[in-house]
Design a protein around this nucleic acid. Structure first.
Lengths: 347, 347
DNA sequence: CTGCATTGTGGAAACGTTGCCACACACGCC
DNA sequence: GGCGTGTGTGGCAACGTTTCCACAATGCAG
């Protein structure tokens, strides 16, 4: 008896194919395919023989061949801006939950908010003929690229689409408005806004909310209080510090969790006490916001739920390719904590 | 002129194939393949025509067909325990950086520390004939499965392999020893250990370090101070609280960032002041540890670098499949902050 | 002017699977 | 006893690419 027969773990040079399984069980490849894929008729005894043979040989179907032949895959591509940011991580987690239940496999990619990387990701998913793609969009050309291949796209968090497509967002305008109104209610009049300098709907919306709240409060906006920062600004903290010195805000609204963290660090470094010297409102609740002292008032978003909804929207579209696109808008909620107080010395 | 000709964006029913590009450029598919894949000879003018045609038609090569034919892919599977945990997220980020530079594509999966999910992931990567797999292992059978398909595996963070395979870990024993020794040096004698109740090399190592430090200090280990917690323990905080009440430690060593966070929350809820009432040392430096007051003393690990090294090890093995397996051990470093003081009231 | 490299291109098979179709066989009914 | 009918299986082509090989065209030397 040959060594190979004795030791099935020997890494055979050639991977096990369907034909091998069929030969082992004494059937044709067609029958083996029907038995193992579960489509089509096979008698019980033959099916059992085939399953046993497949198990024994350690057969794992070649996904490439299957996708090539079936011209459809069960892989859904997900591309987010920054995996290091828990916001995107939990978005992805939500997506994964829902996709898994539906028998789809999530493939995750991070693009560092770089158009080029996102486009490369879209290209990769197009190449593997993904069933669909869910993304927090950065590049305008990713969607058209995928659309041309008939791959449905769902945008989450941001809207960027120039073509009709499903989306899940939150009401950023309202979030920004409530955050700002909360500060007005506490008596603040000089509220700084830290926001990303892009035309992303997220930051645009939060900015509009900030402006709307001013309008409602009848307070003119001092443009020196608005600080638009480039996405990967190296000097963000320096610019925040400079804003504090020159524009003398009594409160800060940081329009995302990263900016909030940076603002917080600057305040600590400068020895400005929160909320005694400066109040702080963040956007997007993160664990640390509840752990620091004082805890940070913030606009919470249902991150994981957004991921789940996005996946659900994609699944719907896979079933009904022609359905009219939907944009689901979820509501943020203001979580009031200790970082916001009336301006001036605490009573 | 037909509408379709006018509007190239019309989602054609059939995706563009290599044959389409060839026809468009007036060549054979063979030539088109050589031109677009870059292997084999094509004259300059023909190559230019083909590239132009591919561009115009929006051709994206079918990855399935390519992988099927070439019997090799440039996809590397990565499966981590929990994407929501920044530790794993930055591990993945490190992997991605290095793979991208080498022209490989990372595909990320999270398995919730569930064997079944990890195995399903391994199966998926085997099915797509991934070039290699990097994982923080949980299931014993994932590696054999992949090995049988000739797919090299690199383990990161933990070692679990029953077969020889490359790995990147940190010196957990040393980390645990230094953390504990630091507390001994401050005068503590009753040091609680919070650790995950598994045979993972990470937690085992940290536990051994804890024990070794006791030996060195000549202090007998009180078993009531050691709290092994199941991976997804719902009642973790309750058990930590109970440990505090019954075993009366003056210091806590939490062997990972999650346990550290839970311990911190319990201490806050009980009104125990850090470090006045109880000192706290964590494992794995996270942003929040530096933000809370007092900041948390912790054993920092070069997370991202671990990811990079793991990817490098995989790349090496893809070049030299027969090289002897390497285990790289990186060194953790103790970051002393304000959460550790001598026991008893601060002077 | 023939023969032989050289240069550039096309033909065809193969990768591993699926799914249509045809076929073999047994069975019961008229 | 022939004939439909139903049951179970195999043959074969196709998915889109790559790659080996053959071959056409060109140039050049003998």
């Amino acid at each position: 008896m040959a060594i190979e027969t004795l030791n099935p773990e020997t890494p055979s040079s050639r991977p096990v194919t369907l034909a091998d399984v069929a030969r082992e069980a004494g059937t044709s490849p067609s029958t083996a395919s029907r038995a193992l894929s579960g489509r089509g008729y096979v008698s019980a005894p033959v099916r059992a023989r085939l399953l046993e043979a497949a198990e024994r040989l350690g057969y794992v179907a070649n996904a490439s061949a299957r996708v090539l032949k079936q011209r459809r895959s069960y892989v859904v591509g997900v591309v987010v801006s920054d995996l290091g940011n828990q916001f995107y991580a939990s978005l992805a987690t939500g997506v994964e939950e829902t996709l898994r239940e539906a028998g789809y496999q999530m493939l995750l990619l991070s693009d560092n908010s770089e158009s080029a990387e996102e486009l490369a990701g879209a290209r990769a998913f197009a190449a593997m003929r993904a069933a669909g793609v869910i993304m927090t969009p950065v590049a305008y050309d990713a969607l058209p690229l995928l659309a041309r291949h008939g791959i449905p796209v769902v945008e989450v968090d941001r809207r960027l689409a120039t073509l009709p497509c499903d989306a899940v967002v939150i009401d950023n305008e309202r979030g920004g408005r409530e955050a700002t109104a909360h500060l007005f209610a506490a008596g603040h009049r000089r509220i700084a806004l830290l926001v990303v300098d892009t035309d992303w709907t997220t930051d645009r919306g939060r900015l509009h909310g900030y402006l709307a709240a001013h309008q409602i409060a009848g307070v003119a906006v001092d443009q020196r209080l608005v600080l638009p920062l480039p996405v990967h600004a190296r000097d963000a903290e320096a610019r925040i510090e400079s804003l504090l010195r020159t524009a003398a805000p009594t409160a800060i609204f940081a329009a995302n969790n990263l900016l909030a963290e940076q603002a917080w660090r600057v305040l600590r470094r400068l020895g400005r006490r929160i909320p005694h010297d400066v109040s702080l409102v963040a956007f997007d609740d993160m664990p640390w916001m509840e752990m620091v002292d004082p805890a940070i008032t913030t606009v919470a978003q249902p991150t994981r739920e957004m991921g789940r909804r996005a996946a659900a929207l994609l699944l719907r579209r896979l079933e009904q390719p022609a359905a009219t696109p939907i944009t689901e808008t979820l509501q943020p909620s203001l979580v009031v904590r200790g970082s916001t107080h009336p301006p001036g010395p605490v009573a």
